[in-house]
Design a protein around this nucleic acid. Structure first.
Length: 81
DNA sequence: GTTGAGCGTT
């Protein structure tokens, strides 16, 4: 299971995200897809944690929360096709 | 601007 994180600041980095989610559990991986043409983050990302309970806690705590001036959109990610 | 990539044999 992974977590989708949307409405991110375009200044946010994977380390920033990891730091935030690490408060709710062990972050296994963080991904911030970048636009191939601009080389910049697209404004959303993915986080994987070691336990589903941790992911749920992080989603519950961070969805709708303000971070770097933006209201985060956090929920369970769709399976990548 | 709202659901990734991996590209080479883990």
């Amino acid at each position: 299971m992974s977590i989708y994180v949307g409405n991110l600041s375009y200044d946010a980095t994977d380390e920033d995200l990891k730091t935030v989610f690490a408060e709710y559990g062990t972050v296994k991986s963080v991904k911030l897809p970048t636009d191939r043409e601009t080389g910049r983050v697209r404004g959303f990302g993915f986080v994987e944690m070691s336990a589903e309970a941790e992911e749920t806690a992080a989603i519950d705590a961070l969805d709708g929360a303000e971070w770097m001036g933006r209201d985060l959109r956090v929920n369970k990610a769709k399976p990548r096709q």
